[in-house]
Simulated assay, not measured.
Amino acid sequence: MATGADATGPFEAVVLAAGAGSRFGGGKLLAPYMAGVLLDGALAAAFAAPARSVTVVTGAEEEAVARAAIRLADRFGQHDRLRMVHAADYAQGMAHSLRMGVASLPAEAAGAFVFLGDMPRVPREVLQPMADAVRAGALAAAPVFAGRRGNPVLLARSLFPHVLALSGDAGARAVLADLGDRLARVEAPDDGVLYDVDRVEDLPS
């Protein structure tokens, strides 16, 4: 594998929001959460990242998810940073959505933050250190809490060809698995990097 990020190129952010949420019973990303919907948390974290743009990859419930993303971007005054990409074959698994998002990025992108739409509590404190680590030469960066690696991840552009070769539902895990010390691990202040919503009972009561 090649070196880390180009020191001068911009990072981009990708939010994977294409899944059908079958274990949740459908409609997961649009389920009420805090003062909005579940997707808002991941989107807000993506907009807080040191990234030039935020690409939301839609799939199931394409129009409703897109409306939710636009609504939040407008509320934050971030409409100009928002991009939308549709993964028509989202049922193939997370890898398809990730490939679609990464393939859509501008050629000069130095790397991509990858956020999962069902992880609403990502602590902002991990984002800049992740970017700094990849700028310093790491091939990827990920947050860690209590010894467990979490999300989001930041992938240097040199990993994009490996991402575009993925299949199934593994997401970026297969790309990170063999990086060893070329994966920078950033300590997270809380378990928001591990918390995701799979079922209705995972939502706060």
Rank of each mutant, 00 (worst) to 15 (best):
V134Q: 02
A87Y: 00
Q78A: 14
A138N: 07
A110C: 02
G147P: 03
A112T: 06
P120E: 12
F115Q: 09
V114T: 10
P120M: 11
E61G: 04
A140M: 09
H79R: 15
A140T: 08
G101P: 02
A44M: 14
M84R: 13
G147R: 08
V126R: 08
H96Q: 08
Q128R: 14
V102W: 12
R99G: 02
A110L: 00
R135Q: 04
V65T: 14
T58Y: 05
L127K: 07
V126F: 04
P143V: 11
L127F: 04
R75A: 15
H96V: 05
M94G: 11
S53D: 07
A91I: 02
A73V: 10
P123V: 08
V102A: 02
H79W: 13
V134S: 01
P129K: 08
R81S: 09
A68R: 13
R75I: 10
V134D: 01
G147T: 06
P123R: 12
M119K: 12
G117W: 01
V57C: 01
Y90F: 14
A136R: 10
A88G: 06
M119Q: 15
D118M: 06
R124G: 08
P50W: 08
A45G: 15
A146S: 15
R75L: 15
D132K: 11
A131T: 06
L98A: 00
P50F: 06
P120G: 12
S97V: 02
R67C: 12
L127T: 05
A73H: 11
A69D: 12
Q128P: 06
A88R: 15
V57Q: 00
S53M: 03
L139F: 12
V134Y: 07
P120A: 11
G59Q: 02
H96M: 05
V57T: 01
Q92N: 02
M100R: 07
A133H: 07
A107W: 01
A142E: 11
A51I: 00
A68V: 13
S97R: 03
T58I: 06
G101F: 03
E125A: 15
D80K: 12
A66E: 15
